[in-house]
Write a protein that binds this DNA or RNA. Structure first.
Lengths: 223, 223
DNA sequence: GTCTATAGGGGGATAGAC
DNA sequence: GTCTATCCCCCTATAGAC
């Protein structure tokens, strides 16, 4: 058992949030599992929302630092030349998959993070945007430099699709089991599989988008 | 406004569920938005869970019928020959993207479906498994026939990753906006982009998985 | 079929003793 | 820092009038 109440509450909240979601997890569930008193949450964190924010920040800050460190290392090695797409993908998604393989909470946390992107809760989105601002800027720049032939908008979509694949790779094990019996116990295999898929998607032939060539002229608004 | 109370409740529930999740949506919110009485939900559906199930089944049954119809059409045309991967992907994911472009509820529903896969609520998973059983069997068979060189386990993972990309394509618009300003208003462009990405991922070079070569002998269970 | 009213339980937050 | 006790709110579900 953790030494201090605060840490025990964070761990319990992480575990319960991934199972029951933000609204489905109650302070009573959390304090019971943490062997703490109900009032302890408000004493240590101030409110349920503040506790949830602390759960995310605890590991997300570290994750994004790792991502930037990985990118820094590749860029130092490249001495100003563009990175290979594989290196950028590795820096962003590889680090995440490796964290997801860490039984010491990382696994739980990454599942929580994965399901949170599709749950648009306002206060969560606000601090996620904060936490991600720097890492997103760095990776966009690296990708644009590495793939100058890919239109920026196209790349943003592909990055988004890649996030979806990552999310399911980590937190969609239940959906996966809908498909049939599979072995999801080997993180190394998962890493290899996902990287292969992501790079295949990223480097797919560019589609021709026959979109409206120009934004439609602004007409009177419909009622 | 819809003619009957029952339909109004279903529509209101769909809208609210996608925004607030299963636990975050209350019967009061639903009946208020539907201009119905609080007791109407229990009269028409029996319980909150039964209402949620009705919301899913109303459109999911139709969606999966469309998927199977699309596959049937391609298979009739192929006269027993394996389909092209592109045709199978089109049948499964193309139909979904097209439903997601339908403003008449399909859009909302597909976003709801996308976020539900990563929310493992027991009673939802139960009826989703039911609704998907047939379509999954059909598509697995078609894929295995089309790509006999891809190991089945590898394919299941790729299918799973593709589901993740689809989910984000449809319901992750908020996460996408974290990345920067993008135009997500053109469903045709989204369709083209996603298909290109999915097929790139599906046809990526097979990774070498250095997993434990044989299932470990069954040892005594740990405590 | 639709309403009002209410039962019965559980939620987050806090006051105040220790 | 940690506890008990409690406030006040909102939840789902249902009984019973219309």
């Amino acid at each position: 058992m953790e030494p201090d109440t605060r840490s025990r509450i964070l761990d319990a909240a992480e575990n319960l949030l991934v199972q029951h979601g933000l609204d489905g997890t109650t302070l009573r569930m959390i304090t019971t599992e943490a062997h703490a008193n109900l009032a302890a949450v408000n004493y240590h964190f101030g409110s349920k929302e503040a506790l949830i924010e602390a759960v995310f920040r605890r590991r997300l800050t570290w994750l994004n630092e790792q991502r930037i460190a990985a990118l820094d290392a590749f860029e130092a090695e490249a001495k100003g030349a563009p990175l290979k797409p594989r290196q950028i993908v590795e820096s962003f998604f590889g680090v995440a998959i490796r964290m997801a393989a860490d039984k010491n909470g990382g696994q739980t946390f990454m599942r929580l993070l994965g399901r949170t992107y599709t749950e648009p809760t306002d206060f969560v989105r606000t601090f996620l945007a904060e936490e991600y601002a720097e890492v997103i800027a760095r990776f966009k720049a690296a990708f644009f430099k590495a793939l100058p032939d890919v239109p920026q908008e196209e790349f943003l979509w592909r990055f988004h699709f890649m996030m979806g694949a990552l999310s399911y790779a980590i937190s969609g094990a239940d959906a996966l089991r809908l498909l049939g019996p599979v072995d999801d116990s080997d993180p190394e295999a998962l890493y290899t599989r996902l990287m292969s898929f992501l790079i295949g998607g990223l480097r797919a032939p560019l589609p021709e988008i026959h979109s409206q060539p120009v934004r439609k002229p602004r007409t009177k608004r419909a009622a």
